[in-house]
Simulated assay, not measured.
Amino acid sequence: MHALHTLDVALGERSYPIWIGPGLLDDAPRWTTALRGRHVLVVTNETIAPLYLSRVTRALGERLHASVILPDGESFKTLENCGVVLDALARLKANRDACVIALGGGVIGDLAGFAAACWMRGIDFLQIPTTLLAQVDSSVGGKTGVNLPAGKNLVGAFHQPRAVLIDTQTLDTLPPREYRSGLAEVVKYGAIGDPDFFTWLEANATALLARETGVVAEAIARSCLHKAGVVARDEREDGERALLNFGHTFGHALETVSGYGSLLHGEAVAIGMVLAARLSADLERAPAADAERLEHLLRALELPTDLPGGTSADDLLSLMRLDKKNLSGRLRLILWRGIGHADIVPDVPEAMIRAVLSAEAMAPG
């Protein structure tokens, strides 16, 4: 029997637990305590519903519940589908003490959480992430939202969950590419703030790829512990929390320019982290050897590190100008001083960014 990890996101009266371990979906007495009222709406997708929806609804017992099953994929994280969830809450006659359960990956968590933030100006929601990426990143911290054709996550709200339930056995049904995508966010935590964790990841890369249960649970717990600490210190991304976007400004632009779904989020972030590390080296902020070490780890985890062929540096730069971290039209990027040390860097010269992007775009695949 593997140990249960219990962490807390410390936000005063709005603090909440993160439970990590195998078989937690069937531990109804633990997670149903987070439900305050009788009305519950479960939001999931066409991939996850056949696997886990019945187990969740069975645990709800006599509560008045309904479910929304959305198509699977980043391209469906839209205002239109948020409206589908809100309409379902209306049909359920959900009250202010109702709860939305997000059962799925980051797309479902972001969209369902945003709908919960909107219904009656904010009702409870519970995160049950079923992908590694969602378990270590998007399910913790209360960022919710949807995409627009102009860019990713441009519409959203900060809305913290009541609890996060991470059943590690849900990873058994996760396709290999989706699993590897989640490992990029795990690497990010070591890259921006924990060099010892980065070294641990290098030593355990093979075990992580093989999904060894204890190693995976440890990686999830250490990632969540880092994120919970950052969120507690900077809930609304006024400072330190922005560091969690290391690689994301490049990555989000890549996702948008390639069409949502062509590159998985973690794949785009992996490429984005390498670009940020190389830019840091070009700006003489960090050793080039650390950028090479980062690239080596990502490749060991079978993640992409190069721009897809045909990617336009101009298109990427144009999308990066829309990034939410920018101030007064000036680009702000998360760069680093080497492994474990990230910074928010204002006024990064566009010529330097363009040079890195152009060099990568022209590099042989």
Rank of each mutant, 00 (worst) to 15 (best):
A228K: 01
A232C: 02
R330M: 13
L64E: 09
E185F: 00
G83T: 07
R330A: 15
L174F: 05
L357A: 13
W336Y: 14
G229K: 05
A184E: 01
Q160M: 07
G21A: 05
P349T: 10
L132P: 05
L89I: 03
G37L: 01
S223T: 07
A270T: 10
H252N: 07
I128T: 07
G309M: 03
L25W: 04
K93V: 11
G259N: 09
T249A: 14
N45D: 15
A117S: 14
P22H: 06
L357H: 05
L254D: 08
M320F: 05
T256L: 14
P308F: 08
T78K: 05
A289C: 00
I128G: 08
T206S: 15
T32W: 01
P349E: 13
T305D: 02
G329L: 06
D8I: 03
G338P: 13
V9N: 02
R36Q: 12
E360F: 09
V215M: 09
T213S: 14
G104S: 08
D323M: 10
A98K: 05
N245H: 06
R337V: 10
L89S: 04
E255H: 11
K77M: 07
P22R: 06
G61H: 02
L225V: 03
V216P: 11
Y179R: 00
G266P: 08
R321W: 03
L254H: 09
S312G: 04
R332E: 09
K93A: 14
E62R: 09
S223P: 10
G261Y: 12
A191L: 07
Y260L: 15
L317M: 11
T32Q: 04
T249S: 15
G329C: 09
R96T: 10
L307S: 07
L264A: 15
I353E: 12
A221R: 08
A116C: 05
K77G: 12
A253F: 12
A10V: 08
V231H: 10
L303E: 01
A210H: 13
Y179K: 00
I20P: 03
V274R: 10
T130H: 04
E350H: 10
L53T: 09
R14G: 03
T57S: 06
I334F: 11
G37N: 02
V231Q: 02
T47P: 02
F197D: 04
L357I: 13
A157T: 10
D27N: 14
D167Q: 02
L263R: 08
